[in-house]
Every structure is written in C-alpha cells, then in structure tokens.
C-alpha cells in the first residue's frame, strides 16, 4: 500500500478533465460545489461546464435534458444533498427514464458517511446507500480509494446508465496497487484471505477493516477482507462464493444499519441458501449524530471504531 493520500474527487475530476479534451460529448455540472481540480476544469471547458447554483433538483433535471440529447453528464454535488434533496428527480428522470431509453448521467456525490464530521447531521450521509440501492436501473458505486475511483472513469463513460458515485471527502491512502487487475464489473475485491472471520466493508470502512485485520492478526485471529464497491446487482454468485467457507461475516459501513445499505445487500445474498454464515452488522444505529468531534472520535462514540469492532470479533467463539 502506498502512503500517498489523495482525495477521490480530485483524482476523478482530473481524469474527467483529461477525457473532456478528447471527448466533446462530456458535460460537467455542479450545484455550486467545488474542488481545486474543478477550478481547472471549469476554466478549460467554459461551454461544457455549468454551475447550476444551489439547486440540486434543477441539477438533476438539467443533467437529464443534456443526457437525452446525447451527452455523457457528470453532476457533482455534496452527497447528502445530491441524493436526498433531489431524490424524486433521480427516481423519475434517471431511474425510470433509463428503463425506456438510454441515458448516461453520473451523479458524483462527495461526503460519504462522516466525511464532513464536524458539520453536523445535515452533512453526514448515512442513508444514501440504501435509498439509491432501492432504485431500479441505477448503478451504485462506493469506492474505498482513489485508485478504484480513477478506474471507474472508463466504466462511467462506457456503461450508459444512470450511476451514483459515492466519494469520500477526505484524503485517503491507496488500497489498490495494481489497478490493471481491477475489474469494476466484478463489484468487489478480496483484499485478504482469512479463516472463519470475514470483514465485508465499503468505502472509508475498508481502510478500517484493514487496520482491524492487522490488529486481530496480533491476537492470532486471521480475518479475511472483502471490499465491496458496487452495491447494485452484479455477479452476486461470485461474492457469495467469496464469503462461503467463513462462519462469520462482519459488514462495516459508515451508514445506518438494518436499513437497506451494505448489510442488507450482504444479508440478501447470504439469505439465498443455508451457508452456515452468521452476519454481524457494524454501522450507525437508528439515530443521527449531533455530537461534535473528529471522525475517529465519532466512530468511538458509536462503537464502530477499530477497537470496538476488534472486541466484537474477539467475543465470537473461536
């Protein structure tokens, strides 16, 4: 693993910027939400960039109109506002429309989970995975690092469907070293093979899963890690096969549990047969977080920090 940290959004936007030089069919929209790399893009592509203003509903509708006319569109905003303020626009103009006609709109949401830790519950994003997953015809992508995020650019252009791209807001180190071996359509990647215990995580929590597995290794527990990055239908059978052989699967997500997010996705896959696998769900319980403090502090308060999860796993009879 390299120690170089990067924000997913800057890597993604930089890559889109370079594609826009070669591909006149790409349009970039934002709802008055920026990034250093976006400054470059909007300077370079004045006619194929519009800041629609603080108007997420219109962001989606403008994106729809452009996409109907054939553009590949990126609509960029803070994740909770993008997905929740404009949910019906996404439902009707993207998810429903895509069932009848081809449309390529990529919703790029920044601020997964607790990325905006000190901005309070309006800026936390715990519901997006479940509400986006519930929409048919929509691809939900939740990368754990910038390498995977960059890898998704080709896929986002090639696969002409509406997509929700859930990016973390903080600079994070790379997890993937050999991007050429990564296949987005697989939907997941096995990062570590273990025995009995398997951590199944998405986004930021995959970084935690790696640390938890290292911690457990010191205690003689060999935990596997699966990083799930597509949360809508793909080859679920191979994900099931990757989990078979473990007796305990622990899902880790910076989102509400028991509500339709990663845990529900895994649960529905495990529920397809009797595989003798017990599911443990780690994430936020059924309440918003008004407490202030760093991401790590808020994780500790909510028992989803490394130590708490390690403790939970150690209680599992070996």
């Amino acid at each position: 693993m390299t120690t170089e940290t990067k924000t997913m959004r800057d890597v993604f936007i930089e890559e889109i910027n370079s594609r826009m030089r070669k591909n006149a069919g790409i349009f970039f929209l934002c709802a008055d939400f920026g990034s250093p790399k976006l400054d470059q893009l909007r300077k370079e592509f004045g006619s194929r960039f519009i800041n629609v203003g603080i108007a997420e509903q219109n962001l989606i509708n403008i994106a729809t109109g452009l996409a109907i006319e054939g553009f590949t569109v990126y609509a960029y905003a803070i994740a909770p506002f993008l997905t929740m303020r404009a949910y019906e626009q996404i439902r009707i103009n993207l998810a429903m429309y895509a069932q009848l006609k081809e449309i390529n709109v990529n919703l790029v949401g920044v601020g997964a989970g607790l990325s905006y830790d000190v901005s309070g519950p309006t800026h936390h994003c715990f519901e997006d995975l479940s509400i986006m997953r519930t929409l048919p015809n929509l691809v939900v992508f939740s990368p754990s690092d910038w390498v995977l995020t960059r890898r998704f650019v080709d896929y986002s252009i090639k696969i002409k469907k509406p997509k929700y791209i859930r990016l973390d807001g903080k600079p994070l180190p790379a997890i993937y070293r050999n991007p050429e071996n990564l296949r987005i359509e697989n939907g997941f990647s096995r990062l570590r093979k273990g025995k009995k215990i398997c951590l199944v995580s998405t986004g930021y929590m995959t970084h935690k899963a790696i640390k938890i597995a290292e911690k457990l290794a010191g205690d003689g527990i060999d935990a596997g890690i699966i990083d799930v990055f597509l949360l809508t239908s793909f080859d679920e059978r191979s994900l099931l096969n990757a989990m078979k052989g473990y007796s305990h699967v622990i899902t880790l997500e910076e989102g509400f549990i028991n509500k339709g997010g990663l845990d529900s996705f895994i649960s529905s896959i495990l529920g397809k047969g009797d595989f003798g696998i017990k599911l443990h769900r780690v994430g936020f319980k059924d309440k918003y977080v008004f407490d202030l403090g760093s991401r790590e502090y808020l994780h500790r308060l909510n028992n989803i920090d490394e130590d708490s999860v390690a403790r939970l796993i150690k209680k599992i009879p070996q």
Binding site: G65, F71, E88, I92, N93, L100
Partner: peptide, 29 residues
C-alpha cells in the same frame, strides 16, 4: 415515453421545465 411522441416521464409535476432547460443547453452547444 412508451407513447410515441412523448419525450419524458410525466406525472409528478415540476420536472418538465428543468429537463427542457438541459435540452436547450445541449441544442445550443
């Protein structure tokens, strides 16, 4: 749009004008 001649999904109000604006931007471009 399952009906020939209709461009967008209708039924929930307030969507058409914004989608039209996106089309207008595309056509101008």
């Amino acid at each position: 749009p399952v009906v020939p001649g209709f461009e967008t999904i209708n039924g929930s109000l307030g969507h058409g004008l914004g989608v039209a604006c996106g089309m207008c931007v595309a056509l101008k471009l």
